[in-house]
Simulated assay, not measured.
Amino acid sequence: MSSTAGQRVHGGTDGLGAAPYDFSTNSHPAGPCPQALAAVQAADATRYPDPAYTRLRAALVAFHGVVPGRIVLASSASEFIFRLSAWVARQGGRHVHVPAHAYGDYLHGAQAWGLEPVASPDAADLVWACEPSSPLGQAHTDWPRRLDHPQAPLLALDCAYAPLRLQGQPTLGTAQLERVWRLYSPNKSLGLTGVRAAYAVAPADAQPAAAALDALAPSWVIGAHGEAMLRAWTEPGVQQWLQASLDPLRQWKARQLELLQGLGWDCQPSDSHYFCARTPQALDLGALRAAGIKLRDATSFGLPGWYRLGTLPPQAQDALAAAWRAQGGDNTHPPVPV
């Protein structure tokens, strides 16, 4: 999601429902993960979850190999973004730095709590980063100069797409990651974006801050279905499914890039399964949507004329190519074989 003039712009389901061929969302195109879906479907929605989330916290502590007290649960990544912004403002923070092209809730949450955006990450009290980034799927480049300085800003790294990295390496090493807040929202990687639940791993020395952020959350911050999804996320079988899905996803992405580039589209490099592309002539998004195809206009990300596309299976790719040709696009290149 991104924000334009106070409006929240997003991909995925819209007023017309779910598009049959939805390139506008970054959800895993091979999902849902069967094991995670079964866990969500088996969740007992007739009862409150354990308000302390004892078993969930223990599973996440073991999964990340951290000490208890470093896990902060959230009803979604967006909810945590707003809560962290509120906590920074309550601590006297005044300034925020966000990536030039980024998820809109970083800035929306900061502005809701009176944090003013600044150009330099070293001048901020709160710095947001995302890697692979959205919408570009590239490495984050605008880090504070010294992450280990006592007066360094609070750095929050959105890891929403890290499990879906198809190439490249993370910028931060293990020791550096121990000094930043890491935000995880597994619903994208599991193909279950309708289930809202997330969590953050606090820096190694930030257990008091983690406790304060926990105290800012309402009771039962995660419902039964979100709890079931997060517990499933930590299970070996789910992680094995995810890893096994990446090679086919790489093949789908390579095919989609070849197809679109053959049609004259300019496609940006990306480390994840989504990327930004620009067409040689304007697209009629309304006509595409009527044909069951949805793309994400990247204007609200600060990229007018570009579109963010998630990778979809070959059938969806061919439908997009046919719709593009129907709008008068290049029809001189042969189709890409499956």
Results as ranks from 00 to 15, higher is better:
Ala290Val: 02
Glu116Cys: 11
Arg94Glu: 12
Leu172Arg: 04
Asp330Phe: 12
Val66Leu: 10
Met229Gly: 00
Ala282Met: 05
Val127Tyr: 00
Val67Phe: 03
Gly93Asp: 03
Pro117Thr: 01
Thr4Met: 10
Pro150Ser: 14
Trp113Ala: 09
Leu157Thr: 02
Pro49Met: 01
Glu178Thr: 00
Leu84Phe: 08
Gly191Trp: 08
Gly173His: 05
Ala124Ser: 11
Asp247Gly: 05
Thr311Met: 10
Gly302Phe: 10
Val66His: 04
Ala215Phe: 04
Val180Ala: 01
Ala321Asn: 01
Gln281Thr: 11
Asp22Lys: 11
His140Tyr: 15
Ala5Cys: 07
Tyr199Cys: 03
His273Trp: 13
Val88Tyr: 01
Ala59Gln: 13
Lys188Gln: 13
Ser272His: 09
Glu258Gly: 15
Leu56Cys: 05
Gly262Ile: 09
Ala254Glu: 11
Leu263Phe: 08
Ala200Ser: 01
Gln240Lys: 13
Ala198Arg: 04
Gln268Glu: 14
Gln138Val: 10
Val118Pro: 06
Ala100His: 04
Ile71Pro: 01
Gly11Gln: 00
Leu16Gly: 15
Asp284Glu: 01
Ala89Asn: 06
Pro99Leu: 11
Leu312Met: 14
His64Cys: 00
Leu16Thr: 12
Val336Thr: 14
Tyr48Asp: 15
Arg182Val: 07
Glu131Arg: 02
Arg55Val: 10
Ala58Gln: 14
Leu115His: 09
Lys294Ile: 06
Val61Trp: 01
Ala298Glu: 08
Ala212Pro: 08
Asp247Phe: 11
Tyr307Met: 14
Ala52Asn: 11
Leu37Val: 05
Ala139Gly: 07
Gly114Arg: 08
Ala244Arg: 15
Gln41Thr: 06
Gln256Phe: 15
Trp241His: 10
Glu235Leu: 15
Gly137Met: 13
Gln151His: 14
Cys130Ile: 14
Val66Met: 07
Arg289Ile: 04
Gln239Met: 05
Tyr48Ile: 06
Gln268Lys: 13
Gln268Arg: 15
Arg278Phe: 05
Gly137Leu: 13
Asp214Cys: 15
Gln151Asp: 14
Asp330Trp: 13
Ala38Arg: 03
Ala5Gln: 06
Ala290Gly: 02
Asp297Pro: 12
Ala18His: 11
Leu84Val: 13
Arg296Thr: 04
Ala215Gly: 01
Leu249Gly: 06
Ala321Val: 07
Leu190Ser: 00
Pro186Ser: 02
Arg278Leu: 09
Ser185Ile: 07
Gln111Lys: 15
Phe23Arg: 04
Gly114Pro: 10
Ala100Ser: 01
Gly329Met: 08
Asp247Glu: 12
Gln111His: 13
Ala5Ile: 03
Lys294Arg: 15
Thr193Trp: 09
Gln111Ser: 14
Ala42Arg: 02
Trp241Leu: 12
Leu60Val: 03
Ala110Lys: 00
Glu258Gln: 15
Ser75Phe: 07
Ala89Ser: 12
Leu126Gln: 07
Gly286Arg: 05
Ala326Thr: 05
Val67Ala: 03
Asp22Trp: 12
Pro248Phe: 12
His97Asp: 00
Ala291His: 08
Arg165Asp: 07
Ser85Phe: 05
Cys33Thr: 06
Val61Tyr: 01
Gly114Tyr: 11
Trp324Leu: 14
